[in-house]
Amino acid sequence: MNLPRINKTIKRVLLHVCLILIASFGIFPFIWTTGSSFKTLEEFYELKPSLLPRNPTVMNYVYVFRGIGEGGQSSGAAYMLILYRNSIYTTVVSTLLTVAIASLAGYAFARLKFRGRDAIFYFFIVLMFLPAGGTLMALYTLMRTLKLIDKLWGLILVYTGGGGTALFLMRQIFLNIPSEIEDAAKVDGANSLRIAFQIMFPLATAGMVLVGIMKFMGGWSEFILPQTFIRSADKMTLPIGMWRVTTIANNLAQARTLPSPGVTYTVMLLVVLPAVLVFVFMQKWFIRGAVEGLKL
């Protein structure tokens, strides 16, 4: 082997060492959490913690699904499942609604010419750039007037109505579709609704998936809005309900009423899992939509 080739190999190895280090930093908390969720009580009181459990047990999972109460104590009903239902319901419905209305509007703003279109669009941009004050507080007063406090539907409407990101993304995606396709359809005599729904919308699928994934992630993780608008424990969404359980459960664990601190880790893992699964399976679409549609 000559010198430049050795040089190249060294560089290659260095590159991968760097990336492996960064990737381990990225997934190390998961490994710790996953490992700890399978640990027995005894292992937590040993002085030498290990990344992976020595005697794996599913006891923590059984405890969580048998019925962990809102205060971390054991109760009859499976609080975990109630929280899952609430979170899935709000996130999925608001994601579908957002993709639908943002696609329609994004298409109209990008491709249709109608009176006042630009004025309306720039009005959105200008308002987004003015400093927000008590938006959350005012939203609270609005929800109180509409009697939507402590209702999952209220949460769905706020998720769907908030933020212009989805609109801007969808408009950008429709702007990037070449106009030749549209022109050809017009020459063939297709009417405007056919052009929209049979030609343009299918071309924007990757972009819709991108917007959908982003909305799903945002909704699944949302912390402040449910904290503000949901009162009762059985209407809470998963991240907050479980965050409360783990912070309370952690104190209880110190008082030795929980079977094991492993329950805390199990709960965290169960919150994380759906988002991770969606991301891992959708990430190809995500990258495709972003590279094709956005032209950053």
């Binding site: 639908a100 209305i101 943002a102 329609l104 509007a105 298409y107 109209a108 703003f109 249709l112 010419k113 109608f114 009176r115 279109r117 309306i120 959105f124 308002l127 003015l130 927000a132 004050g133 008590g134 938006t135 959350l136 507080m137 005012a138 939203l139 007063t141 609005l142 409407l157 706020v158 769907t160 109505g161 908030g162 933020g163 212009g164 609109l167 405007s192 609704l193 929209a196």
Partner: peptide, 27 residues
């Protein structure tokens, strides 16, 4: 121009006015 454009943007504009625009100004 294309009148159907108004129908297309209506759901978004209505939602946005109610849950972003109004709280924004009131805030």
């Amino acid at each position: 121009g294309s009148i159907e454009g108004y129908v297309f943007i209506l759901p978004l504009v209505a939602m946005w006015m109610l849950f972003s625009g109004y709280p924004y100004i009131r805030g």
